[in-house]
Design a protein around this nucleic acid. Structure first.
Length: 635
RNA sequence: GCUCACGUAGCUCAGGAGGCAGAGCGUAUCCUUGGUAAGGAUAAGGUCACCGGUUCGAAUCCGGUCGUGAGCUCCA
């Protein structure tokens, strides 16, 4: 019998007869096969059941490997689909991939199901797991596949098969009475699934297109052990405690009202944080050579026709009539900045001209997309438009990338970068777009920033580099963005006089750092779980007298701190220290200054820090210096 | 906008086969002056989201509207 060479990850080289299965190799050479989910054969994911036909490099995957976890959960989604087909034979299958931390499967039910039905489906899944049905792969021809799924009444599967590329082998996986079109690989059998839970039910358009029918998507997750599942669910519960909507109410930062859906109301505490973010922002921007302007909220329709917004953004805009003429509430700041640029002549020596604006924009977003402060209908962009000569593009884009990185580091945010390319609804020539995209890509590569390409997601006037941050549940939100624009300066007839004495059209970068202050604040709340560093904390310290006899001294301490420009309050209610401390902890105030008889006599304060606890007494002056330092360092 | 779910006191939530609206926290007043995460007493507080229907009677059942949540689509 002919032999093949098998090289294992550990470097061992073995010889086996052709057709040996990965499972046999695993049994011989892995300490335990229990946790092994699938294998990588020459960098390709494979079922353990599959035979080896030629010399191969083999590595086994368990749940700790991201690919292993994905295969594990994908197999769970097949069990879900099997359970659904047993309970609802008329249900049609959509797709059922693994996602981050779980999986989903889309179905079209004859009658919509509700969340209460998930329990029954879970019970059926448990039965399927106990049946230990093997996942069996088969490769079949396109005709066979179409016939099979047509006969089983699966039009969505047929649609997928019809669109598979010609050279792609079509594989199906069978487990007992269930068959699914699937590239695989899968677990050995359904019994290998340890613990799972169905976590949600939602609508989802077939193939993500709103013109298609809406299917019902069942979400779930699975883990090898019940303990791991339990821990995951607990982590989710913990994460929900950081939710900015909950903390925003508890810390009195902002509120949302039926009277203005999507239009947030900021309270005093929220305003303090915003003001700190903005003054930091202004300092940094002045230093980086930006000027600041403010343009009107409402401008004439003609401006929006000129800018292209009327044609490309109208469904997101609000309108009004003034003296019988159409006006629009600005959804973007760029046209205003264009007018400011155009209000005087420019020499190439004036460029780059960096014009910033903290502009409040309004956009009509679909009601179903509103989400706390993360998705609103009015928001403040920390915008700037950089007017440049073409040869200034790369250094300016690089400068903005550095600035965004500098800002996000201050808060300790990890971010993800995307390059968004030409959308279907775009203005300008394809050549311009290609050029602009190439420039952005080049700068990203020079900066060595890892990035993902987001095909067709650019603004209508140009491609962009987007910076994404995550919320408490790991959902990703676009914040910073750098958009390159060769179109709008031309539409507004902008010019500068070049070294050659001729008129030239400048290029523009649209960019934001925070993105929207509202969204950034929401992410900050979740990032810090409401416990803001002292420079941002609405209240930086609270003075806590122990008895009424220290009220006068406490008031003195409080006004000394206020005199030093700190945000401090005096808690002179007739409550016990423990009570006041508990309340200050819950309000996440960084410093609590307890003053009793001893402190009053020695002109001291007993400092308690929100996280570090009791730090003991110290002279008031020393505390003031320390707090000043902490605030300056933004720690 | 679409799918499913939800809407009871400032907050968190009970309850309700159709018959006087409940708790804890918070708030107010009084007592208590207490050394590092909840001292005690009393009280106030709700057209049960809104509009309509069924009914002798609706917070409860039905329909609609608005809002909210999880997703989808869309986006800073």
């Amino acid at each position: 019998m002919p032999q093949i060479k098998v090289k294992l990850k550990q470097g061992k080289e073995l010889s086996y007869p052709v057709g040996v299965s990965l499972l046999e190799i695993c049994r011989e050479h892995e300490e335990s096969c229990d946790g092994v989910i699938a294998a990588m054969v020459n960098e390709k994911e494979c079922d353990l059941r599959s035979p080896l036909e030629s010399d191969s490099e083999v590595a086994f995957l368990d749940f700790s490997d991201e690919r292993g976890a994905r295969i594990y959960r994908h197999s769970t989604s097949h069990v879900l689909a099997q359970a659904v087909k047993r309970l609802y034979p008329g249900a049609r299958l959509g797709i059922g991939p693994a996602i981050e931390n779980g999986f989903y499967y889309d179905f079209e039910f004859t009658e919509p199901i509700s969340a209460e039905d998930l329990g029954q489906i879970e019970a059926e899944m448990k039965r399927i797991i106990l049946e230990e049905l093997p996942f069996e792969r088969r490769e079949i021809s396109r005709e066979e596949a179409l016939a099979l799924f047509r006969q089983r009444g699966e039009p969505y599967k047929c649609e997928l098969i019809a669109e598979l590329p010609d050279d792609e082998p079509i594989s199906i996986y069978e487990q007992g009475d269930f068959v699914d079109l699937c590239a695989g690989p899968h677990l050995l059998d359904t019994g290998k699934i340890g613990a799972f839970k169905l976590t949600g039910l939602a609508g989802a358009y077939w193939r993500g297109d709103e013109r298609n029918p809406m299917l019902q998507r069942i979400y779930g997750t699975s883990f090898p052990t019940a303990e791991q599942l339990e821990r995951h669910l607990e982590l989710l519960e913990e994460a929900k405690k950081r939710d900015h909507r909950k903390l925003g109410r508890e810390l009195d930062l902002f509120s949302l009202h039926d009277e203005g859906p999507g239009f947030p109301f900021f309270h005093h505490n929220g305003m303090i944080i915003i003001e700190e973010l903005l003054s930091f922002w202004r300092r940094e921007h002045r230093r980086a050579g930006y000027e600041e302007i403010r343009t009107p909220m409402i401008m004439n329709r003609k401006l929006w026709e000129n800018s292209g917004h009327w044609d490309h953004f109208r469904e997101n805009m609000y309108f009004t009539k003034i003296d019988g003429e159409d006006y629009a509430v600005k959804p973007m700041n760029c046209p205003g900045a264009m007018l400011v640029y155009r209000s005087r002549l420019h020499s190439y020596r004036d460029l780059p001209r960096r014009i910033a604006e903290l502009g409040l924009v309004h956009r009509h977003e679909l009601s179903g997309t509103l989400h706390g402060l993360l998705r609103v209908r009015s928001f403040t962009q920390d915008d700037a438009h950089i007017f440049m000569t073409p040869d200034q593009i790369e250094p300016e884009v690089a400068g903005v990338i550095e600035m965004i990185d500098r800002f996000y580091r201050v808060f300790g945010f990890n971010y993800r970068v995307e390059l968004s390319t030409r959308p279907p609804k775009a203005i300008g020539s394809i050549e311009m777009w290609n050029r602009a995209e190439a420039i952005l890509e080049r700068v990203l590569q020079e900066k060595g920033l890892p990035y993902r390409i987001n095909e067709g997601d650019g603004a209508f006037y140009g491609p962009k580099i987007d910076f994404h941050l995550e919320d408490c549940l790991g959902r990703s939100w676009q914040c910073g963005t750098i958009q390159l624009d060769f179109q709008m300066p031309g539409l507004f007839d902008l010019a500068y006089i070049g070294a050659d004495g001729q008129k030239h059209c400048p290029v523009v970068i649209h960019r934001v750092i925070y993105g929207a202050i509202e969204r950034f604040l929401a992410l900050l709340i979740e990032h810090y779980a409401g416990a803001f560093p002292a420079w941002l904390a609405p209240q930086q310290a609270v003075v806590i007298p122990i008895t009424e006899r220290q009220h006068a001294y406490a008031a003195e301490v409080c006004s000394a701190l206020r005199g030093a420009a700190f945000r401090v309050n005096l808690d002179d209610r007739s409550e016990k220290v423990g009570y006041k401390i508990r309340e200050a902890q819950l309000k996440k105030i960084p410093y609590m200054l307890v003053v009793g008889e001893r402190e009053a006599a020695a002109k001291q304060v007993a400092v308690r820090h929100r996280e570090a606890g009791d730090l003991g007494p110290q002279p008031l002056e020393r505390f003031i210096e320390q707090l000043r330092e902490v605030i300056k360092e933004k720690k």
